[in-house]
Simulated assay, not measured.
Amino acid sequence: MPSKPDEDDDAALFRQAIGPVKPLPESALPPARPKPRPRAGMAELDERAALGEFQRGLADLSVLAAGDTLSYRRELVPPAVFQRLKRGRFSAQDELDLHGATILQAESMLRQFLAEAHDHEFGCVRIIHGKGLRDGGSMPPLKNLVDRVLRQRADVLAFHSAPAAQGGTGAVLVLLARR
């Protein structure tokens, strides 16, 4: 029989109370959880930003009437620059007149014109779409086409109907991004 432990030795009293112990067999550690797959966080943010801008562009699309003003500005264009564009303070480096063109012809001409303007690194161009008063209806088709195409293009930073001396609501000044 083991000797009587000292009354003050708590550890010895505990060992006496529980009796002999045997160690547990060693076991392997539980398997670690698999690490999550890496995500392209910046790409997701870019996609969300692009989708947000696209949806804002769609929300802005409404049928324009003959006298309505075309106006659009990307967030990266400072308001002061946009004000200069609205006032016609930018010199148009090239011009496209869509008078007399069908919708399909006008869209093709417009896309080709913008691509060439971008290739020549023009900063500002003027597009004459007409007011649509001769069409008989209240919706000018060329004006609405120009509005839709310009909003979809990544190289278009901003646009606004020209001042009265430069064509008024029958023309639009377009600010283009440089390469």
Rank of each mutant, 00 (worst) to 15 (best):
P79Q: 13
A106C: 05
R37D: 14
S161H: 00
L96S: 04
A154F: 11
L64K: 15
L24Y: 08
S71H: 07
A177L: 03
R126Y: 02
P2M: 09
R87E: 15
A162F: 00
R153H: 06
T69I: 15
D46F: 13
A101N: 10
P140R: 03
E95M: 09
R33V: 02
S108C: 06
D9F: 05
H118V: 01
Q112A: 14
E121Q: 15
L142Y: 03
C124R: 01
A12C: 05
P20G: 03
L76D: 15
L157V: 00
E26C: 08
A12D: 06
G136S: 03
A80Y: 10
A158K: 07
D8W: 10
R151N: 05
A49W: 05
P79T: 09
H160R: 01
F113M: 01
P78N: 07
Q83N: 11
T69W: 08
A80I: 08
L176N: 05
L175Q: 06
L150D: 05
P38I: 00
I128P: 03
V174Q: 03
V172M: 03
A12K: 11
D155M: 10
G19W: 06
D8M: 03
R148G: 02
A171V: 03
R74V: 01
R73A: 08
P78C: 02
V125W: 01
A164E: 15
Q166Y: 00
Q16S: 08
L64M: 13
M1G: 13
S62L: 11
P2V: 08
K22P: 00
A92S: 15
H118L: 00
K86R: 15
Q93S: 10
A117Y: 05
F54Q: 13
P38Q: 12
R84G: 04
E53I: 02
R33P: 12
K86V: 08
R111T: 05
G57C: 11
R37H: 09
L114P: 06
V125N: 04
K4V: 11
L114W: 08
R73D: 02
D94G: 11
R148Q: 08
Y72A: 04
L70E: 03
A66Y: 04
T69Q: 07
L173F: 06
F54K: 12
R153L: 15
A171Q: 04
Y72S: 04
V149W: 13
Q112K: 11
D10V: 14
L133I: 11
G170I: 14
G132E: 02
A40S: 12
G52N: 14
F54N: 08
A117M: 04
F159R: 02
R148Y: 13
A43M: 10
A177Y: 11
I18D: 06
M42E: 15
Q16P: 01
R179L: 09
A49M: 09
E107D: 09
E75V: 11
P5V: 03
K131M: 10
D94M: 05
V172E: 02
R134E: 10
P140C: 01
D6T: 06
E121C: 07
V125H: 01
Q55E: 13
R179K: 12
A40N: 14
A101I: 00
P23K: 07
A162N: 02
E53R: 12
L173P: 02
D60C: 10
F122M: 12
R134Y: 11
P34R: 14
L175P: 01
D119A: 15
K86N: 03
V63K: 09
H160F: 06
K35I: 10
L24G: 10
E116N: 12
R56F: 08
